[in-house]
Design a protein around this nucleic acid. Structure first.
Lengths: 129, 129, 129, 129
DNA sequence: GTGGTCTAGACCACC
DNA sequence: GTGGTCTAGACCACG
């Protein structure tokens, strides 16, 4: 069962359903969940996570709306083909990053300093020829 | 009047008082507001932003609790000396960045790709001939 | 219902929300409220004490910030595990005591006299034949 | 000038006039200020402490009401004879202590533990014969 | 049902 | 004038 990879952080300020959505997005985009693979049923996942089924239901609805999964009545939900969605996701990341950088720079951190931080976190040494 | 720099985004999901807090944190950390400078009074700022005084009050209390401002009863609130706090803030940014990068990588974006994005956003051309 | 133990003293100069905070701190630290036990809901406690829900809400937020309780959105607030916090609290008490003793001594009361007072109040007869 | 001993703590939550009152009470009770000695004038003390004269005025009024000083029109304020007041003060301390101890015990600290703390703070070794 | 945010308006103590 | 507290009542998101 892959679903054990879904972890709820109750200390997180974000609602549970949003955490579930994000986790599935990640698993689908990174290829851990392949296209047309079946999603766990709402009831079973809810039970496994000790969460209200309504919450899972809401997450699935949103995932379907965003095109990550599709639903076949009476059969269940399945992973969509998201080869095209990856590009959209990258644009989203860019946008998010931009907003974040703006805030950081506004707080008085120089761009050079920020870049150094990025490299440090990513573990990239560029000085090597 | 510097306070015109406080802008409320009603489309933002975050509560108003949190936006106010963040904005003042930025202005104080980047040096736009100097130590011992008076903050606008709760009532006046509330009126200027067309916001309830209680909301501003709450933001100020949190700013005081975090050490960004201090208040003298009957006189008003003033900017604290935060020369030392800047370092703590940078550590916080680092942590935030780390979490963000983890999420992005989890979604299937390679570290190299991410670094390229960073440089693009920061407008830094490093390897350039 | 344990909540009847919360008593508001309107003659007390301190604000209501602070009294509520202190009372719960005591009950949690002395073990009257066990970890993971549910706190009364904001609305119900407010009604029982004939107090505005906002005031209780403020107390709960502060208690959460101080780590005495945690809250699950839509479900309620619960008592945190504070086995470690007890030590910190004792240090705080020591500090408070020190300040108090300093003031008293500054007013001209001798240390010996003070100690006698302490014993009297605590009901301890130590040197007794 | 003895008045340099008056220190205002702006971080203290208590109002300034109350701090002034307490400080003078201490100095009078411990004998630093003798009976019939002149108090500093409202204006001069206000100027020295960079405080609004109204605040000093209020403190003096309260001190007079409590019998610590007396005022002669056109001449100024003077320290009262407070040999009898010392006893009253001690009773007040007892009461304050009692309330404090009650709170501490309510928080789960044992009486024995508290007494040990008291001795430690007071620097009294009683084990010696 | 729960907690979280916000408004409008009031009263207080302090300076 | 200032900040601090409280009330009454509303709306929202969450489970």
């Amino acid at each position: 069962m892959v679903w054990r990879m879904i972890l709820i952080d109750y200390k997180d300020r974000r609602p549970i359903y949003e955490q579930v959505i994000e986790r599935f997005q990640q698993m689908i985009l990174c290829g851990a969940l392949k296209a047309d693979e079946p999603m766990p049923s709402v009831r079973s996942l809810a039970m496994e996570l000790s969460i209200n089924p309504n919450t899972i239901q809401r997450a699935y609805q949103e995932l379907e709306r965003q095109g990550y999964i599709y639903t076949m009545k009476g059969k269940g939900s399945f992973v969509s083909d998201t080869t095209g969605a990856a590009k959209a996701k990258r644009e989203e990341i860019k946008k998010e990053l931009l907003g974040y950088v703006e805030k950081t720079v506004a707080a008085g951190v120089s761009k050079e300093e920020l870049l150094t931080l990025f490299k440090e976190v990513l573990g990239v040494n560029e000085g090597e020829k």
